[in-house]
Amino acid sequence: MARVVVDVMLKPEILDPQGQAVQRALPRLGFDGISDVRQGKRFELEIDGPVDDAALDRVRKLAETFLANTVIEDFTVKVES
């Protein structure tokens, strides 16, 4: 069984209120030197069978239609060994 990871991030031009909240909290907690924070989502999918191109296409399809809201989010798919 192999693991495929889908990372979903808000598109760079889209406001990320959660990331901003984290970024604003950092100096208050004494963590300096962080100028920006963007927060995203990580999905770990366990794939039955081989992770071939067909399987990855399926993952991309499900990421595009279900895991990510592609109007405001981008996603990347990578295989974890």
């Binding site: 808000l10 889209i14 406001l15 901003q20 909240a21």
Partner: peptide
């Protein structure tokens, strides 16, 4: 349909 998609505004109600 919605093929042309300019950047959507995202709101922050707490702001």
């Amino acid at each position: 349909g919605p093929s042309r998609r300019p950047a959507v505004q995202v709101g922050d109600p707490f702001q």
